[in-house]
């Protein structure tokens, strides 16, 4: 029986960023996680900032004042971008994880065609959808800024 425990070789977070076959879906997976964490952080900050309302209108106005202006508008746009991607990709994941759009099991004959190829049009579709939502939102942000 082997007694040495071996040298650790788990990739860690680097394994999210690269490795395997460096495929598109890996980056959708990683971006989904990062945007999810970003949105979570935003919600926590949102609760902290808006909870100022409980301490009266002045506290509310002061709190709002602290989070207005250039960098926060950019931040809000990034939150919106994260939402656009996370929501669109979430729809793809719900479909795929319920076994839709991945095709039926087939006999593997080289060159192999996998479920990843089957769902690729859906993956590209959600990227286009996220892009459209982002463009519409960006237009809205710019229009808002110019006033």
């Amino acid at each position: 029986m082997l007694d040495n425990k071996g040298h650790p070789n788990r990739l860690g977070v680097w394994g999210w960023l690269g490795g395997g076959t460096w495929g598109l879906e890996r980056y959708l997976y990683t971006l989904h996680r990062l945007t999810g964490l970003g949105l979570l952080l935003y919600f926590l900050l949102h609760i902290v900032v808006t909870s100022a309302r409980a301490f009266g209108p002045e506290a509310w106005a002061a709190s709002m004042g602290r989070v207005s202006g250039g960098v926060f508008v950019l931040g809000e746009f990034l939150v919106f971008a994260a939402f656009a991607f996370h929501a669109s990709n979430g729809v793809r994941l719900i479909l795929v994880e319920l076994g839709f759009a991945i095709g039926n099991p087939i006999e593997p004959i080289y060159p192999y065609r996998t479920s990843v190829h089957e769902q690729r049009p859906l993956a590209l579709g959600i990227l286009v959808l996220a892009g459209l939502v982002l463009a519409a939102g960006g237009y809205n942000f710019l229009a808002h800024l110019s006033h």
Partner: peptide, 8 residues
């Protein structure tokens, strides 16, 4: 969450 790398 379907990174699909295993299949590729």
């Amino acid at each position: 969450h379907y990174a699909g790398e295993c299949s590729q």
